[in-house]
Design a binder for these strands. Structure first.
Length: 215
DNA sequence: AACTCGGGGCA
DNA sequence: TGCCCAGAGTT
């Protein structure tokens, strides 16, 4: 794990590298972001946006989703993989929003993860991007990148989230979350990381391990 | 901890 | 054509 000074420098470099990093899902309300994030699991935001642009045009809000049947929603989101599970979870989530939360998307972790199909990752995305609550959603990119570059040193998502919150100043959580995702998608890719254009190699253990192997 | 869901984008 | 994708629930 990086030392305090190295962490500060790393965060600076990440910001400089991805100054415009932001949530790339299209949404207008917390409810829409919740649905879009649920759809984004194991899928690409490009595909999700194509579907949600059309979906939210026809069904913009919770009350509209309540009229949707399982098969009907499945057809609407069929271009996205895992569509049966997702349709089922979204409808169950909508039902619970009405029954338990007065039709409003809750703005806290505990209530969000009580919703069907909503885990910590999805909850953090909604808290951060829809409610302005400082949060770090540890998805595959955040996990991979933060552990590679030494912002975390953990073998699971929970520890990674814990360490990131400790290592990153609270006011930077939401931005850092997007820096790490953008870095993971554009430079620190899973299979073929572009270390030759990465500005973080100075402290990066992963880079050093690759360099040591001569590749 | 391993398994399942899954069509579309992209090399 | 084959591999991978802003995860979560179940076993």
């Amino acid at each position: 794990m990086l030392k305090k000074k190295e962490i500060e420098k790393t965060l600076e470099l990440l910001e400089k590298t991805h100054p415009t990093a932001h949530c790339e899902l299209n949404f207008r309300t917390p409810f829409q972001l919740l649905v879009a994030t649920m759809l984004s699991a194991q899928s690409t935001d490009k595909t999700v946006n194509k579907v949600t642009d059309r979906l939210f045009e026809k069904y913009p809000a919770l009350e509209d989703f309540l009229k949707l049947g399982q098969e009907e929603l499945e057809q609407e989101i069929k271009e996205i993989g895992l569509y049966r599970n997702k349709a089922k979870n979204i409808l169950a989530m909508c039902s619970k929003l009405v029954k338990k939360f007065n039709g409003e998307v809750p703005a806290n972790m505990e209530d969000l993860v009580s919703l069907p199909g909503v885990g910590r990752k999805t909850a953090n995305v909604v808290l951060s991007n829809a409610f302005g609550v400082p949060a770090i959603a540890v998805d595959t990119h955040v996990f991979r990148v933060s552990n590679r570059i030494g912002l975390a040193e953990a073998d699971n998502v929970e520890k990674t989230e814990e360490q990131l919150m400790k290592n990153i100043p609270r006011e930077k959580w939401s931005k850092a979350h997007h820096w790490l995702i953008w870095h993971g998608r554009r430079i620190c890719e899973a299979r073929k990381p572009k270390c030759e254009i990465c500005p973080l190699t100075e402290y990066c253990k992963y880079y050093k391990s690759i360099a040591a192997k001569g590749k």
